[in-house]
Nucleic acid binder design. Structure first.
Length: 507
RNA sequence: GGUCCGUUCAUCUAAGGGUUAGGAUUCAAGAUUUUCAUUCUUGCCAUAGGGGUUCGAAUCCCCUACGGACUACCA
């Protein structure tokens, strides 16, 4: 590929970064890294009314957590600074003027009320009003007003916007790396506002100007931008920047798991999975939205899952770390259709990453769970417990559900199991078991097993009649790892205590 | 309503004219586990519909249906 690849991730700080946005960032990152290019974070905050405090910090923190790094951006600087559009404000007016001078744009003085009235008027006739070549002559703008009138209004400081003057009836070709060539007729497009009356550019102007001045080579963004891509292409032409126009790649959308439609903020907590990387508290309403991180997902699992939602390497491999993704990623293997989020598969991914961690790593994480429960235990012991139960959980927090009996005696016994397994002769058997275990000098797994086996053979009992009640006594139910291992780890004293307890509790 | 994009198992997807349409997740069954889980094996399940083109179509073309995005002085 010619020249150095430069891509950007350009979110708006209007709230927490949505998981679809994270995927867009990831694909940009993978593409940049693979080509030895640069990854840029640009903040598109041209809409002052939608600015949400903390959103920018949130975006940075979330991407950092996931291991998506930037070479340039608001938080790391760079030679194309500033990277926040509000900080670039002065330059846009000049570019808008350039378009007006070139006959590609014009001043429009219509007030929001004027436009609203126009829309209503059209609606009554079952038509849709569109500010374009067919209607602009009937509106209040620098194409209908005399040069003097326009100058007068500008001198008087009357509010105005700058609109793009879409040429009538020409075909605009957008060459998309994922979708191929998309052709749209210009008469279908409206004269988009490029520069707002508050002195700020709209997305369209700022985006093109910034991508050009920052020498962006590839624009990888969501499919929701496809309809406005023709405008962007024409804007490059209007500025005379066709030669350096970036290549476009419009990503398929992430859909709701149930029904249809774009994944939205509300879906997450409704369906029991996060739509945000990190937990977010809305500064205005104090409403809390859950995040992957807080829900116990590993960042590498989230990355892996997201990478495969809309892309695959064409092989049957499904587990990838970031460096493998960088190596294998390619835009032409991105699918065209939207992907639904699959909660079960997300769990599976996390499970795979959890199992792959060492017992010590898990112990490190699980220790925090224990701390919250005010339980202290030796690190080696905790690590051993983690190793024993990790195959059966998806999240670190679930280790507790599977292993609490390693730390505290069962507070109650599974009623259904008791009913089914606690027979009339069980108390007598348990009494014997207690005596046998109590008499063991060597409380190793082998000795525990051998002595109990010898006992059951001598009494002509099935092992189940001995082991299951013992398990209930130690664990509280019929689940958990190998019983000899549990008994050995608990130690003789604790085992005896738990047998006594169940003998007293269950009759 | 209009424009654009899309459509392979329930879900993520593979198969770039020739395969019994493959894998993964889920679900189900069996084996193993004296418990539960794991693990292993097996099974269920798909080319939206209709027309073409072709010896041959999931793949190319057209129509229909369905879904989505966009249609703001929001991004």
């Amino acid at each position: 590929m010619e020249g150095k690849i430069r891509v950007r991730f350009a979110p708006s700080p209007t709230g927490p970064l949505h998981i679809g946005g994270v995927r867009t960032a990831l694909y940009n990152y993978l593409f940049a890294r693979q080509h030895g290019g640069s990854m840029i974070l640009r903040i598109e905050d041209t809409d002052q009314t939608r600015f949400v405090p903390g959103a920018e910090e949130y975006i940075i923190e979330a991407l950092t957590w996931l291991g998506i790094e930037f070479d340039e951006g608001v938080h790391v600087g760079g030679k194309y600074a500033p990277y926040r559009q509000s900080d670039r404000k002065p330059m846009y007016r000049e570019y808008a003027g350039q378009l007006i001078n070139g006959g590609w744009a014009y001043y429009a003085f219509d007030t929001p009320e004027d436009l609203e009235a126009k829309r209503k008027e059209y609606e009554q006739e079952k038509k849709t009003f569109q500010y374009d070549a067919s209607t602009r002559d009937a509106m209040c703008n620098s194409l209908t007003l005399s040069v003097e009138e326009v100058q007068q209004r500008l001198n008087d400081g009357m509010p105005y916007v700058v609109r793009f003057k879409f040429p009538a009836d020409t075909e605009i070709h957008v060459d998309d790396l994922i979708r191929g060539e998309v052709v749209v007729n210009s008469s279908l497009l409206d004269d988009k506002v490029l520069f707002k009356s508050d002195g700020m550019p709209t997305y369209h102007l700022a985006n093109i100007v910034d991508d050009h001045t920052m020498e962006i080579t590839h624009v990888i963004r969501g499919e929701e931008w496809l309809p406005s891509a023709p405008l962007h292409v024409l804007l490059y032409k209007a500025f005379g920047w066709e030669d350096t126009m970036p290549r476009f790649a419009h990503l398929p959308l992430l859909l709701k798991p149930d029904g249809n439609g774009k994944l939205s903020k509300r879906d997450g907590d409704r369906l029991g999975f996060p739509v945000f990387p990190l937990q977010w508290t809305d500064p205005a309403t104090k409403e809390i939205s859950s995040g992957y991180r807080e829900n116990g997902y590993f960042p590498e699992a989230v990355i892996n899952m997201l990478a495969l939602l809309g892309w695959n390497p064409g092989t049957e491999q499904e587990l990838f770390d970031m460096s493998q993704l960088i190596e294998l990623f390619s835009l032409d293997r991105i699918s065209k259709s939207g992907a639904k989020f699959d909660l079960k598969k997300a769990h599976w991914f996390n499970h795979e990453y959890l199992v792959a961690k060492s017992d010590e790593e898990l112990a490190e994480l699980f220790s925090k769970v224990l701390e919250n429960k005010s339980i202290s235990s030796g690190f080696t012991y905790v690590a051993k417990v983690c190793g024993l139960v990790k195959e059966r959980v998806n999240f670190v927090s679930e280790i507790w559900d599977q292993a609490s009996f390693f730390f505290i005696a069962p507070e109650s016994y599974d009623e259904a199991v008791i009913k089914k397994r606690w027979k009339e002769n069980t108390p007598a058997i348990m009494q014997d078991v207690k005596n046998i275990l109590n008499g063991l000098a060597d409380f190793s797994e082998e000795h525990i097993h051998d002595s109990l086996q010898a006992y059951s053979e001598e009494k002509g009992l099935g092992m189940g009649q001995v082991m299951i009640p013992l398990r209930i006594a130690l664990v509280g139910g019929t689940f958990g790892p190998d019983l000899q291992v549990i008994a050995n780890m608990l130690g003789k004293e604790e085992v005896i205590r738990r047998i006594d307890r169940i003998l007293q509790t269950v009759k």
